[in-house]
Computed example of a mutant assay.
Amino acid sequence: MTERLHIAPQGPEFSRLVMGYWRLMEWGMTPQQLVGFIEQHLELGITTADHADIYGGYLCEAEFGKALRLEPSLRQRLELVTKCGIATTANPQNKIGHYITESGHIISSAETSLRHFNTDYLDLLLIHRPDPLMDADEIAEAFISLHQSGKVKHFGVSNFTPAQFSLLQSRLPFTLATNQLEISPIHQPLLLDGTLDQCQQLRIRPMAWSCLGGGRLFNDAEFAPLRDELQTVMQETGAENIEQVVYAWVMRLPSQPLPIIGSGKIERVRAALGSLKINLTRQQWFRIRKAALGYDVP
């Protein structure tokens, strides 16, 4: 069973590992099979489910909702996270992909998510990407309205810079709960650009997406030295596989990111829990960093 963490001083409380449903439509599950999968990861203590309105060509939320309709009791055991603010061409109305963070869109998107999930509240709503046309007052207006109506309990952002985060926070009467970020040995800019430092400063825990690089970690030739080093650290720590080492590497960061697991195979989800028992030494952590970047620290 995974532990639970308050991801921000004002909440919410999430499972240490998060189940990501970005690729749900690729898993080929019937609603009944999905019920079984949800029950299995709940039994492992992974209670937080990450979604976005655009996932699966705007289909994942509704597909997940079919499972919740089949087994309504699941809702009370889950924390539902979703995102809005990207308009993709999967919707015929969008001739080009763009961002949209106007107040009316945020509210209507949240209400659509509620219908898809067959629920009357979301645990956490995130703005999916920074918008060059973002008006912080408009987002705050939507967030406050959704909060006062009880439709959304907590709010946050995804892929925001520290300045963008601070701007939006300055307009809100409550604290943003998280910044969902790409954190991985193969994507390390945020480790030194102040983004994770801000999370630590505010005592909020980021959610980490694409920890395994969307599979590139295992397949791309350029990451062969990294795979070799992960294999060595795996043997040193007694880990079962290199995935566990990567998740442990991410969780070793002092901002205490919550890794999002993107697999629809319960065996891989179960194996990810093994990362919670791995304590990397400082030298092991930096060896992985060096193997990924190809150079030593300055």
Rank of each mutant, 00 (worst) to 15 (best):
V157D: 12
G65N: 03
R129S: 09
D123Y: 11
V297R: 11
A221H: 06
E26I: 00
I38E: 03
R227D: 08
T101Q: 14
S170Q: 06
E61L: 13
E43K: 08
I100M: 14
V81L: 14
L253Q: 13
K277L: 06
I96Y: 12
Q93P: 00
E61R: 00
L293C: 11
P72Y: 08
C84F: 10
E240V: 10
F117V: 05
A87G: 08
I266P: 01
Q169G: 13
L293T: 11
R115F: 11
N94A: 03
R77I: 01
I139F: 06
P254K: 15
L34G: 02
L24C: 07
L172D: 08
R23V: 02
F174L: 12
A291K: 03
I144C: 10
V157P: 14
Q76N: 04
V297K: 08
F117M: 13
L258F: 14
A49V: 05
P298G: 11
L133V: 03
G56D: 05
K151E: 09
A239P: 11
E39D: 10
K290G: 05
E182C: 14
L126R: 01
V81I: 15
L17V: 09
P72L: 06
H98L: 05
F14S: 01
R270H: 12
L146V: 05
H51Y: 03
H116V: 12
P9F: 15
P130L: 14
G215H: 03
K66N: 02
L273E: 06
M19G: 06
D123F: 13
N219I: 11
L133C: 06
G214M: 10
L280W: 01
H147V: 03
R289K: 07
D137L: 04
V269F: 07
L59G: 10
T2R: 09
H187N: 10
A208P: 09
H154P: 06
L172F: 13
A110H: 04
K66W: 01
I266C: 00
P257C: 14
S15L: 06
C60H: 09
E267Y: 09
L133A: 14
R75P: 01
L78P: 00
G85F: 01
A140G: 06
V269T: 06
L70A: 07
Q235S: 11
E229M: 12
L293Q: 14
S166N: 06
R16H: 11
K151I: 06
H98S: 07
G150W: 15
L24H: 04
Q283E: 15
S158V: 02
Y295H: 14
I38V: 15
E236A: 15
K153A: 12
M1F: 13
F218C: 02
D50P: 00
V233A: 08
P72A: 03
D137W: 02
E243N: 14
P9C: 10
T232F: 07
Q198E: 08
E39N: 02
I107E: 03
I46L: 15
L191W: 07
G213Y: 09
T119V: 08
G11A: 13
R287P: 08
